[in-house]
Design a binder for these strands. Structure first.
Length: 966
DNA sequence: GCAAGGTC
């Protein structure tokens, strides 16, 4: 008789275990005992390639293990951050997964085989090896197999279980490498920048609530921040340019109308635009040169994957990604939607979609549409987007929720459910049908075009109210060679606008493009920007960096380490570990290479930490008592004399301008290795003698000249010693005491020798306030004087997209004449270059909100040429401060209310709001059309007869390029 | 007090 095999099956989550068990057992699986409440064991008999089996099917909950440093490296002061590149790492089951581990252990003991049903991706392979590790410890005789499945349907699952393979060790090793790289660089740089900056600056000044914030670094979170900061720099670097275009409009006698779009779009040369415009004005009759009418289809949305759902939810429901995922998780747990973390956007052909549609036949909101799909009248097979993670179907509704049954749901949850249902029904519906007409025209020698669209069958758009198929449905009828007189024919002026701030949708797309994070973690990385105080969202939900976020990114840029925040960072890591997954390179080789690479960056950052202090000081004021003298750059000058045993950087013999020399690590303040010399020291120099006892650290001995009267009998006044290990030196320190520079409370002394090691909390701290306040003040002064470079181009060190730091101070400064005169030359509204003063005679009023002097500007607009106004220069708001007032309307008093008393929005001046982007500015006197005659829009004078009317001043008799009134 | 990746 054939012996029954007991097989342990493990899935990545309970829902998979449940579904696979149900499919393989024909819904006859029973529940067995499990130590883990959320990971039951399903039991059923099964025939595996002719062998009768007792299947035990259980699950884990994602990763079973975590990678971390051992306890003795976990405390931040237990080691130098540099040691985190060489410290051991351990993989272990965390406390909250112990029950799952126990369950696996118990089940493994009963079984002969182990079949792994983890998700079919790299992380799944890695989790598989975590499960193997636990199970083999419990039962070393287990036969281990891997089931590879591409859909959760019976046929596919049976194919998979009858064709078991081995787990992919290379894929798992690639994840091991990624985990270790992430851990080492994340922990080391987080500790580095937090310990360096945390207690040195007044974070509260710029809205950071935490007095001592943790300044985390991560290979996903920093490139995400980099995207936000980079966009901010692009916006700031933008120089607005004027452009001109011909605008023509036609209103038919029957009331239909259309805009005729110039084929040249826009010209940046005013003279040429004017000449072309004038040729049109001289022969304004328009001729239809082409009419093209055809049917057009608009296809329904693709089935939803995680990131596409996030993007849609943000756009249509205004739900941030992280919030959306929480609600989707709830809906999934309650059985209303399918698994919400998936890359798949194509339904398996075997999926019974009609059955899902039938769930909704009785719904009062979309039931009628569902019935049309079910009857076949509206049905169309959903399109596929070409992505399949082979573990989950696209996100879709699995159960109907009647409108009165979900009253207890949060409104956002109801909206999300409705969106998923409508999106699913839309994806199963026929495409919308429209009729598009494209017409081309000629006015003089210039070409124009317009498009009209009539939607004839809305189909999927009926059930998807968020759909827009914009187009002019009021197009006048046109025939080939038809002629007509345009109702309006104008030369309009516009200004190029900077790119907009990033929306969450933009950010997700950019992260997706650069491979930053996964579909399951993208929202977390974005949320982290907000939680850490690195970025904010404005009223329009657009992201912009906080002062802190920008300061950090600018710091790494200044240190020459932009690769640590640029969006390519993650892709570079991924590229390397993909080599491991593909078996082309060994894990250890790739790992060591990456760790050494980032260690090099870390050392560079460490050595340039003074640059980081300086750069952050451009944005924040120093905190009084914030650990002066601690930055690496504040060590007195010195020469290297060996390698620091603690962190691997250089030990320096430092010679302060006053006081006794001492030995310190160049990695100060993070590395606190320091040796003070005996009080009797008169002079100290590095000798050319190496210390043999410290040979592997290349330490050289120090030659000391001592005051004879201050040393005990028996010692020479001139000695050459190793200050790290020489017993004579330690004895001298004990006998004489050690000399420490002013401000050092504690004497570290030589290691293991006479000097006492200070308590961790007090080590390395100088007297409160020394240097900090002074440095803060002088930096601010320098910042103002030095940063003359103007906004845009000149303000970015000659390279586009680089930081334009200290912009706030630059705007406040009074030395921007170069920028201002250039602005006038371009015909822009420009600051006049005074400001900063107070009172009627002294310049500008203070902005009542920001308590800083307004800029004094001169308007170049056609409506108010040369008129002076004030505007607030505050730049770090979500949108620039809107305080604005004409000078001649100011009574010399401070501006009063939120809009500045009689002041107004500056929307009409200079920097226009987003809503006005690229909107053409109509000149004061353009040309119009009334009663079939071209007229001057401002004066009403007829234009027939040639001769020209200047669009600049509105007077007839000359063209604009020869205007005497300009 | 650090990462990112699973999952809940």
């Amino acid at each position: 008789m054939q012996r029954t095999l007991t097989v342990l099956n493990v899935a990545e989550k309970n829902s998979i275990a449940k579904q696979v068990s149900a499919a393989l057992s024909n819904n006859s699986a029973t529940r067995g005992n499990s130590c883990s409440n959320f990971n039951p064991v399903f039991c059923f008999p099964y025939n595996l390639n002719g062998t009768p089996c007792e299947m035990l099917f259980t699950s884990v909950a994602g990763h079973l293990m975590e990678l971390d440093f051992p306890e003795n490296f976990k405390k931040w002061h237990s080691c130098s951050a540099l040691e985190l590149y060489t410290a051991p790492v351990v993989k272990k089951v965390p406390q909250d997964k112990k029950a799952i581990e126990r369950n696996l252990t118990e089940q493994a003991r009963k079984c002969q085989w182990l079949i792994l049903w983890l998700d079919c991706d790299r992380e799944g392979e890695n989790i598989a090896f975590e499960v193997i590790d636990v199970c083999l410890k419990a039962n070393p005789w287990l036969v281990v197999k891997r089931a590879k499945f591409s859909a959760l349907v019976r046929r596919e699952l049976e194919r998979s279980v009858q064709n078991l393979v081995l787990p992919d060790e290379n894929a798992s090793k690639a994840v091991d490498a990624r985990q270790e790289i992430d851990l080492r660089i994340g922990a080391s740089f987080t500790r580095f920048q937090t310990l360096l900056l945390q207690d040195k600056f007044n974070w509260e000044e710029h809205g950071i609530q935490n007095e001592k914030p943790v300044l985390s670094y991560g290979p996903c979170q920093f490139p995400t921040l980099g995207l936000i900061v980079q966009r901010q720099w692009e916006i700031r670097a933008h120089v607005a340019e004027p452009f001109w275009y011909i605008y023509a409009m036609y209103r038919a006698p029957e009331g239909q109308s259309c805009v005729l779009h110039w084929q040249r779009d826009r010209l940046y040369d005013h003279t040429i635009a004017t000449i072309l415009y004038e040729t049109c004005v001289d022969a304004p009759m328009a001729t239809v040169t082409k009419v093209d009418a055809r049917q057009k289809l608009r296809f329904p949305p693709l089935p939803l994957a995680t990131l596409s759902l996030q993007k849609e939810a943000i756009t249509h429901l205004r739900l941030p990604g992280e919030r959306m995922m929480k609600l989707a998780e709830e809906l999934y747990q309650e059985g209303f939607i399918s698994y919400p973390r998936t890359e798949t956007d194509v339904f398996d052909p075997a999926y019974d979609l009609k059955a899902l549609v039938r769930e909704h036949l009785n719904d009062p909101r979309w039931g009628a549409h569902a019935q049309c799909i079910d009857s076949g009248e509206m049905w169309a097979t959903p399109r596929g987007g070409g992505h399949d993670d082979h573990a989950h179907p696209p996100i879709h509704p699995t159960r109907w929720s009647a409108p009165d049954a979900n009253q207890g749901w949060h409104p956002d949850k109801r909206r999300l459910y409705e969106f998923i249902v409508r999106s699913f029904l839309a994806s199963c519906s026929k495409p919308a049908v429209g009729f598009e007409t494209q017409v081309e025209f000629a006015i003089a020698a210039e070409s124009f075009r317009t498009t009209g669209l009539m939607v004839r069958e809305r189909n999927w758009m009926e059930v998807f109210p968020w759909a827009r198929w914009g187009g002019n449905d009021n197009l006048p009828p046109f025939d080939l060679n038809q002629t007509f007189m345009p109702t309006e024919l104008l030369l309009k002026e516009g200004m190029t606008q900077p790119p907009s701030k990033l929306s969450e949708r933009d950010l997700i797309s950019a992260m997706e493009r650069h491979g930053i994070g996964t579909d399951a973690t993208t929202a977390d990385h974005i949320q982290k920007q907000l939680d850490r105080g690195y970025a904010l969202k404005d009223a329009a939900q657009l992201f912009y960096p906080t002062t802190l976020g920008e300061a950090l990114v600018a710091s790494y840029h200044k240190m020459g380490l932009s690769n640590l925040w640029q969006p390519t960072l993650r892709a570079t890591i991924e590229l390397n570990i993909t080599e491991v997954a593909g078996g082309r390179r060994a894990k250890q080789e790739v790992l060591e290479e990456a760790v050494q690479h980032f260690r090099g960056d870390f050392i560079a950052a460490h050595e340039r930490s003074a640059v980081m202090m300086e750069e952050v000081g451009q944005f924040f004021n120093r905190r009084a008592g914030g650990g002066p003298g601690d930055a690496a750059g504040e060590l007195p000058p010195g020469d290297p004399m060996g390698t620091c045993a603690s962190c691997g950087l250089n030990l320096m013999l430092c010679k302060p301008a006053e006081g006794t020399p001492f030995v310190a690590c160049s990695g100060a303040p993070l590395c606190r290795q320091r040796v003070y010399l005996p009080r009797a020291t008169v002079a100290a120099d590095i000798s050319d003698q190496p210390c043999n006892a410290c040979h592997n650290r290349a330490v050289r001995k120090v030659s000391l000249r001592l005051r004879r009267a201050a040393i005990p009998p028996g010692y020479d006044a001139d000695i050459v010693v190793c200050v790290l290990c020489d017993q004579r030196f330690k004895d001298l320190c004990d006998a004489c005491g050690t000399a420490r520079p002013p401000g050092q409370r504690h004497n570290h002394g030589p290691p293991g020798g006479g000097g006492r090691r200070a308590p961790a909390g007090a080590r390395g701290r100088g007297p409160a306030g020394r240097g900090g306040r002074l440095r803060g003040g002088t930096r601010r002064g320098r910042g103002q004087g030095r940063e003359r470079s103007a906004r845009g181009g000149a303000g970015v060190d000659g390279r586009g997209g680089q930081p334009n730091r200290g912009q706030r101070r630059r705007r406040e400064s009074d030395d921007d004449e170069e920028e201002h005169s250039r602005g006038r030359g371009r015909g822009r509204t420009a600051p006049r270059g005074r400001g900063g003063g107070q009172g009627p005679g002294g310049g500008a009023p203070n902005c009542p909100r920001h308590s800083q002097p307004c800029l004094v500007m001169t308007s170049n607009s056609a409506a108010n040429p040369g008129r002076t106004f004030f505007k607030c220069a505050h730049p770090t708001e979500a949108q620039d401060c809107l305080h604005f007032m004409w000078e001649d309307e100011w009574n010399g008093q401070p501006l009063g209310n939120a809009r500045g008393g009689r002041s107004g929005s500056r929307g009409g001046e200079g920097n226009r709001g987003r809503g006005q982007r690229d909107a053409g500015r109509q000149p004061p006197a353009g040309r119009g059309h009334a009663g079939g005659r071209l007229v001057n829009a401002a004066t009403g004078l007829p234009l027939e007869g040639g001769g020209g009317t200047c669009f600049k001043c509105g007077q007839p008799g000359h063209w604009a390029n020869a205007c005497p009134n300009r």
